[in-house]
Computed example of a mutant assay.
Amino acid sequence: MKKPIPVTVLTGYLGAGKTTLLNRILSDDHGKKYAVIVNEFGEIGIDSDLVVSSDDELFEMNNGCICCTVRGDLIQVLYKLLAKAQTFDAVIIETTGLAAPGPVIQTFLVDRYLQAHLKLDSIITLVDAVHIHQRLEDSREAVEQVAFADQLIINKVEHVEEKRLQGIETALRVLNPFARIYRTSRCQVTLDAVIGRGSFDLSRVENLSMMARAPAPEHVHDEHCGHGAHCGHGHKHVHDEHGAGGHDGHAHAHDEDSHIQAGGIRSVSLTTHKPLDLTRLEEWLGNLVTVLGADILRTKGIFYISGCERRYVFQSVHMLMEGDLQGSWSDGEARYSRYVLIGRTLDREALRAGFEACIHD
């Protein structure tokens, strides 16, 4: 089977610069073949001279890329794109500037056919340096776009002084402490630097810089762990939306922002250097997703499991979560657990208490 094609979800509020970036992708001589899916082809203003041929919703560009429109179901467009039997270096999907990317992200995590052929690689959010502070105050959608991102591109920096840019980065970190941040003018970012990063991949979650239905959990015995099968769980499932750190060794919860809570969204970081009980941890994480998944936008975590030589790595998007054992702890490395949550109305103390209850006796 061919290696799954990486998919980048591109989002950002109206005027942030998505059109500029998409035009670059579809016209530059970058040597890559991208499939770009946009909400409405006419919105991005591609020069007709760049179009080699068109077939319904598929427009071939003279640099080898293909642009597709979405007038109906995204899944149907993706199926049609894959049926063309062409090889792409990546698929890039632009979401509307007035919506959060959550539903698009979940599409790739629940459809078996798409999972076999496509792999969610990254969520990139473009930010308008001139207007972002206002948008964070008056637009819930803009806040969620920032919260979902793995990478944030602050665009139009030439119009903003350095002090204000630093304030923008601080505000973005409040909402999303683990996204990588770039500064650009007219979206002049190297495409290879932001596309194909693998930042959504579970194996990359352990590199936190700061810090549909699916099958039931698989139980895999891990020879390095003292808990046998219990320490080798691999998860990837969706819960029905209607179903309902510290160096002293103690668990700590840090509200990443004590005064700014844009749109009611905040990030909370939980940390401990004590080993956790995996059974309790998985039960707690599962309960969080079931009960609070609608309000928890994204989470990422690395966990130090009692009796296990490997890190347990976890992430979730709303009701969907996945967790698995990744690389081993290095000899002499300080072991720790860190779990970062981004969501609405997060109860810091309740989260801290639940996290502490997972500490191994």
Rank of each mutant, 00 (worst) to 15 (best):
I37R: 01
G198K: 01
D277R: 03
G97H: 04
V9Q: 00
V7S: 03
A216L: 13
C67F: 07
I46Y: 04
L297F: 07
G72D: 15
L172A: 02
L114V: 00
P177S: 13
E40N: 15
K236M: 12
I75Y: 01
R335Q: 11
I25E: 07
I265R: 05
G72A: 10
E60G: 10
P215L: 04
I92W: 00
D331W: 07
I342E: 02
K163M: 11
V317S: 07
D89F: 05
F178L: 12
M321Y: 15
L78Y: 00
K163P: 10
L21I: 07
D347G: 02
S269C: 14
Y336D: 09
I305D: 06
E333Y: 06
L118C: 04
K80T: 15
G72T: 13
G15I: 14
C308A: 14
G323M: 03
Q76L: 04
Y79V: 14
Q315P: 12
I105L: 01
H133L: 04
E309D: 15
K119I: 12
S330M: 12
A334H: 09
G226I: 09
K3N: 06
E241Q: 13
D240T: 15
G228Q: 03
S258H: 09
E137A: 11
L320E: 03
E322L: 09
R164S: 10
D192C: 08
S139E: 00
R112W: 02
W329Y: 03
I124M: 04
R338Y: 01
G246K: 09
V174C: 03
F59Y: 14
F148H: 04
Y13N: 02
I132S: 09
G167R: 03
G196T: 06
T279A: 13
L208G: 05
E40A: 05
H233M: 12
L58S: 14
L109G: 01
W284E: 08
Y13A: 08
T271V: 08
G45V: 07
Y312K: 10
R348I: 15
L165F: 05
Y79G: 12
D73M: 01
G307H: 02
R344C: 03
K156L: 06
I154E: 04
A35C: 07
L285Y: 01
L10E: 10
D248E: 10
G327W: 10
E60Y: 07
S199A: 05
F108V: 06
D324K: 02
L325R: 11
V194F: 00
V130S: 10
F303V: 14
Q115Y: 02
E137S: 12
